[in-house]
Design a protein around this nucleic acid. Structure first.
Lengths: 329, 329
DNA sequence: TTGTACGCGTTATCAA
DNA sequence: TTGATAACGCGTACAA
């Protein structure tokens, strides 16, 4: 690897001049500029980013923390963030945290030692105080960690209301809910939204709410019990698409036809919803937009130290698919 | 952020001694060692990795190139690699290449400038000559780029043979194949495996092979046509699980019951196969193991310059699920 | 318009 | 057993 000194020698100038040419900084004669550029070309010179980082205290590197990239919600999010990151000539680091506090703290330290310029964090365990020693911008996703930390979220509660209203509108008269883990903010909000819309119905029964743990198998078993014990149920709102898939499979097990006997809607809008049989109606989060927005906010905050705190709430939208469209499939 | 000099001053020693303590290098008196450690503790000192990298020419950072992390095959792969990477105190960089040559070259250059220590590459476009200027270890996944570059692959061809044999064994007498893109190595191999097993059957008909482009919708449409034109087909081997999902949906559209009228098997063993209705039988690649193996090889090669070339071929294995198990669902 | 020289924070060599 | 110092490659005051 050629260094700036090699270029300087070949072009018969000082390293300072080469540096000026590279960074289009300060005055440099057109003739010498040309000589320098030729030398760069000839030596196939590329500046050493590590030396730059050491000097600047910045690495042009940002990191995304997710619990597990294997969770189908995160790949699209990661893709969006990486796209923006790359467009700005930043490097994208991915960290799987399993929501483990120690792991997150370790990543945080390791990346600070590498002069990482910012973090985008999806975590249901990290608290404000865990982040206080971080000297670079942070954007929280999916939940608000503190009023001092920028965030991008969606309208989970009203989105759920909308989903349940939709199920009613297509004729469902007994609607159950498969809920996610109580301690996860968005799961709690989605349950609230469901309750907002059904708790005053005379048919409402608290047994219509069961826990599916955001997990396919758990949701499947829960749905089988539900449909067996309460055959009158003709609509299910699942707290996420993965559990929606479980409900679909459960329905087939107990001989309920979807959507004729039972309408099913999920939440999230992950890609697999469109590959199920029947394809799954869902309240879709604008996953790509969430990631892109978060990355843009982070880029802005990195560039201008005093940017303040951003708090964006994006909007979910209904995607109607076969699981609620009678005469579908 | 405290520096090594701050620690040195506080402990009344030179930076050299602090360095020795940090890296357990060379002799240092127990008493002074203690003083140094206390100073480190007190100042909350963490060594600056950028300075270290500059000195060593290594960054403790490796990168994974995938076409698109959104493709459901890659998250589990990425997870495995990141797990190993993290365990070795390396940082994991993720790059989506879209299989675009220019993008890959750009990433390669950018990461070399950052002194990245190694690359794991999934690419159907990168050629040996594109990689010749890279000075650090590379592991190729899913296909062999050159005999000089380490690789981890699976037995696509014999795996496909096995899949088709299995379909025969459960009673399929007319088996079609939805193939992936011809120019993708593994798709070509899987097609070969299918042909190995059926081309001499008297019922074999070249129209039984259709292209599904490794895409859900394309495969779905292709399968609908296939099942409509050739109602005698009672088994379909899809070149990957995504297309298998498309076949499942197609079957529902044309009123074919899976698995009773039609058995379906896919390839890859991605997680969504287990969330479909019916769940999808598949020839599963050991995705996590592939990633972990690749990462281990890379780590070894980074540590010992002269390690030679590794070429591992792992084995796919059949996972029987509802789509081929009569009496299932 | 250009060059000199220092500093960014480490590690390793050499001498003491 | 410890310390002074050069080097890693770059960017920027400051001087010329």
């Amino acid at each position: 690897m050629a260094t700036i000194r090699d270029v300087a020698e070949l072009a018969k100038v000082s390293t300072a001049t080469v540096s000026r040419v590279i960074n289009s900084n300060g005055y440099v004669n057109d003739g010498t500029k040309k000589r320098v550029k030729e030398a760069i070309e000839q030596l196939n010179y590329l500046p050493n980013d590590v030396a730059r980082s050491l000097f600047k205290g910045q690495s042009k590197m940002i990191a995304l923390f997710v619990p597990d990239i294997t969770n189908p919600f995160f790949p699209e999010l990661a893709r969006a963030i990486e796209d923006v990151t790359n467009r700005h000539d930043y490097t994208f680091v991915l960290c799987n945290t399993d929501n483990d506090i120690d792991k997150q703290m370790d990543y945080l330290n390791a990346l600070q030692q590498k002069s990482a310029d910012g973090f985008i964090i999806v975590s249901s365990s990290l608290r404000e105080e865990d982040l206080q020693h971080i000297q670079v911008p942070i954007v929280a996703l999916d939940r608000i960690i503190s009023p001092d930390i920028s965030s991008v979220t969606v309208n989970n509660r009203s989105g759920s209301v909308q989903a349940v209203q939709y199920l009613k509108s297509i004729g469902c008269t007994r609607i159950a809910h498969i809920a996610g883990p109580e301690h996860v903010d968005n799961a709690a909000l989605r349950l609230r939204g469901y309750l907002d819309e059904v708790k005053h119905e005379d048919w409402f029964n608290s047994d219509y709410v069961v826990s599916g743990a955001y997990n396919f198998d758990v949701a499947r078993e829960a749905a089988i019990k539900l449909l067996t014990n309460y055959p009158e149920i003709n609509g299910i709102f699942a707290g996420n698409d993965l559990m929606g898939a479980g409900v679909l499979n459960a329905a087939a097990s107990v001989g309920k036809k979807v959507p004729d006997d039972l309408a099913v809607a999920g939440f999230d809008g992950i890609a697999i919803g469109g590959t199920l049989t029947p394809t799954l109606t869902t309240m879709a989060q604008p996953i790509y937009d969430i990631g892109a927005k978060a990355a843009e906010i982070l880029m802005t905050q990195i560039q201008s130290a005093e940017y303040g705190v951003a708090a964006e709430e994006l909007t979910v939208r209904l995607i109607e698919r076969q699981s609620t469209l009678k005469g579908g499939v």
